[in-house]
């Protein structure tokens, strides 16, 4: 690990003022510290943003929740209003990592964690995300848990966050503060597809600080389901955050987002559009899934994700319908 200067910021202004190209903001550190030890990240300066006044969850009069970026993952899942209104968000966060890590990790850090692609994490190998222009060995190499949607010739990585998948389904907004002032970035615009610049995960400007996430109210039952290679404490193969308003057997409204399939949480809008107004049947759900997955381009060893994603859409929505 390269030696670094460590500073604690008390305010967002202070954090911004100290941030340069070689600076990283430090939240819980559960991903950043690992990446520093692996040599993937070599910041000259860490600005600790955990003491910023971003550690509260506020209920707005609109019914929206404003979740501070420094809120610990476990505090998010313990919060009564979040538990009451957003089961899929709670379940998503609880299905990620371990109890220990959730106590340390912050909401902002969770959003900004990096892919767990093997090649990205191994500095002795090429990786366009880590070192642009060096190539992507995953395309012909080991990629059984990499992307099927939205990937490019330069990168097939997936985004590892569970929480972000739920936030995508919730139409959340990421609130930031940068040199140009404050921004509210819809989650749909927050994460990027890799294209020819896989080194950029998000649309954040250099130095821009995530201060909070705003979650609008959602009056539908919801749930998060994650499939992985052991029963707990593993990253998703495919996961789904889903919500549905089903009345008289008809889908009035729904939200579907997939995890583990793309460089960003994958909001399945085509599937949603297909379902709205249709009876909640296995057939319609399968049709909706197929609409969404028609754009998929599985790699040599990850075509199973198509079927897995399809089955999760069908099953999860049916289960939500049964509850209605």
């Amino acid at each position: 690990m390269r030696p670094f200067a460590y500073e604690r910021a008390a305010t967002a202004e202070e954090a911004l003022a100290r941030c340069d190209e070689e600076t990283r903001y430090l939240g819980g550190g559960t991903n950043l510290v690992d990446l520093m030890r692996l040599g993937v990240e070599r910041p000259a300066r860490l600005v600790d943003v955990t003491r910023l006044p971003h550690d509260r969850i506020e209920e707005r009069s609109s019914g929206a929740l404003r979740i501070g970026a420094a809120v610990r993952n476990s505090d998010l899942t313990a919060h009564p209003a979040v538990r009451r209104h957003h089961p899929m968000l709670v379940q998503a966060v609880l299905s990620g990592a371990s109890g220990q890590i959730r106590n340390q990790a912050t909401v902002g850090g969770n959003l900004l964690q990096r892919t767990r692609c093997s090649y990205f994490q191994d500095i002795t190998k090429p990786c366009n995300k880590r070192e642009p222009g060096t190539g992507c060995p995953a395309i012909d190499g080991e990629h059984h848990n990499l992307a099927i949607l939205g990937h490019s010739e330069s990168c097939v990585a997936t985004h590892p966050s569970d929480m972000a998948v739920a936030l995508a389904a919730l139409d959340a907004t990421v609130l930031t503060r940068g040199r140009g002032g404050e921004r509210a970035i819809p989650l749909a615009d927050f994460y990027r597809l890799p294209g020819s610049h896989p080194e950029r995960d998000t649309t954040l400007e250099p130095g821009e600080l995530v201060t909070a996430v705003e979650v609008p109210p959602l009056a539908m039952p919801s749930r998060y389901r994650k499939v992985r290679e052991r029963a707990s404490f593993a990253f998703a193969l495919v996961s789904i955050a889903a919500a549905a308003d089903v009345r008289d057997g008809v889908v009035r409204d729904c939200r579907i987002a997939l995890g583990g399939v793309a460089h960003r949480p994958w909001r399945a809008r085509r599937a949603e559009d297909h379902l709205r107004g249709r009876p909640l049947t296995r057939e319609n759900l399968a049709g909706a899934a197929d609409q969404e997955l028609a754009a998929a381009h599985p790699l040599r060893d990850n075509a199973y994700k198509l079927r897995l994603a399809r089955n999760l859409i069908v099953r999860t929505l049916l289960e939500l319908g049964e509850r209605a």
Binding site: R116, A231, F233, A234, F235
Partner: peptide, 10 residues
Amino acid sequence: AQYHIPANAD
């Protein structure tokens, strides 16, 4: 995280 050994929940 990549070589999975059984966890308690398994």
